[in-house]
Amino acid sequence: MLFQFVFLLILVLSVSLVNIGFAASTQNYIRHYAWSSDWGTKIFAFYVSYSASNYTSYPLKYISDHYVAAFNPLPNSPEIGNGNCYLIGVDVVDGSSGTLLGSLDSSQFINNPNGSIWNPGTLIYFDLYSPYRISYYSTSPKTVNAIAKTLFQLDPSWIPNNWTDYTTLTFNF
């Protein structure tokens, strides 16, 4: 009887302390303009998609399973070019104070093992996944921003030719 009670107590406590993870995702439409003496002023547009999961193991909170992809569904003519987009990393910051809670750099990412499905003609800059967790200590709910930082570079003949872009995923837990 006592054993059954202790077992149930442990089960209830475990369930209440560990939240099952939830996935969130966002898609950022990024546009830049640049000048080339050969082709004039042109707009370069592409998307960065970012998804990650969050869960709690009281008093620690985690953000894990980061999927980041950059792609261009309507690439420019190759003469103009489509530049290149690289993942710099992911930062997790406290939404109210801006304090950095943790980060991942590009070396902690691998090619997306699940492989995304792309529309024909889409130019894929990268499609990456990181199993690494970013954890932080928190006893009360708070807003955190997971920010995927990407670098977009064009041929040096374009002015300007490199931009850092930020794609933010907001969690409130």
Binding site: P75, P78, C85, L123, Y125
Partner: peptide
């Protein structure tokens, strides 16, 4: 199979 930056660069070099 898929158009990546590497493939596009390879095609441009060929062209």
């Amino acid at each position: 199979e898929q158009m990546t930056s590497d493939v596009q660069n390879e095609y441009k070099i060929y062209f």
